[in-house]
């Protein structure tokens, strides 16, 4: 069965402008999630997201890969790396990004009326895991987020990172080990809420 993204891209190439909107929408959450969490919300993730799609539009005629999603995330990863290289660490942006994220999160809880302690605890736990993900080295974080946000298989992740499938797997395992260490108590709490 043909993947929806291939069909949408074919429609766009054939002159159906609305197909592009559908294509962007199809990958909006995983792609924006990947970019946002790779950049810790810095470097304007909206701008990077837009740039990814502008490159897709520009180069779609030359696109011959089998896996569109892999191509998309490869572009995103390269842009994130480029931005990170250009970035100047003047202030502690990581902690400020975390503070910003916490503030926004609190606002969202208030907006949605999530006031029971259990709901707040569950959300906070999830946020703590995400915060722990920020402490991972870039290559491990990219593998972890490509698995969790984009649901990409290791074979594709390895291609995107230009490495072997064993290296991609090893990076994922290092990431999991570090997350377990960082979240020992919360991790067991999480088990209690999900079981």
């Amino acid at each position: 069965m043909e993947e929806p993204e291939r069909e949408l891209l074919a429609r766009y190439r054939a002159g159906d402008a609305s197909a592009l909107g559908e294509l962007v929408e199809l990958f909006r959450r995983p792609l924006f999630g990947f970019i946002f969490r790779m950049t810790d919300g810095r470097d304007d993730p909206d701008d990077i997201f837009q740039e990814v799609w502008l490159r897709v539009i520009k180069h779609q005629a030359r696109y011959t890969h089998k896996n569109f999603k892999s191509w998309l995330f490869r572009i995103a990863q390269n842009l994130v790396i480029d931005r990170a290289r250009k970035q100047k660490p003047i202030v502690d942006l990581q902690s400020s990004a975390m503070r910003e994220e916490e503030n926004v999160f609190e606002t969202r809880i208030e907006d949605k009326g999530l006031t029971t302690p259990a709901q707040i605890d569950a959300k906070t736990l999830g946020e703590q895991i995400v915060a722990a993900v920020r402490t991972l080295p870039d290559d491990q974080r990219a593998v972890f987020l490509m698995r969790t946000e984009a649901d990409l298989p290791f074979k594709e992740i390895a291609k995107i990172q230009g490495t072997s499938i064993n290296t991609a797997l090893a990076r994922m395992q290092y990431a999991l080990a570090k997350l377990r260490d960082a979240l020992k108590s919360e991790y067991h709490e999480l088990q209690g809420t999900t079981s």
Partner: peptide
């Protein structure tokens, strides 16, 4: 699986700016 699900289920602090979607569509057109 619980750990990976927790990350997947955690919402982003904010969503994409709707204007970005609009700009992409305009560029595509």
């Amino acid at each position: 699986e619980a750990m990976l699900s927790a990350v997947r289920d955690t919402p982003l602090p904010r969503d994409l700016d709707p204007m970005v979607m609009r700009r992409i569509e305009i560029q595509g057109r």
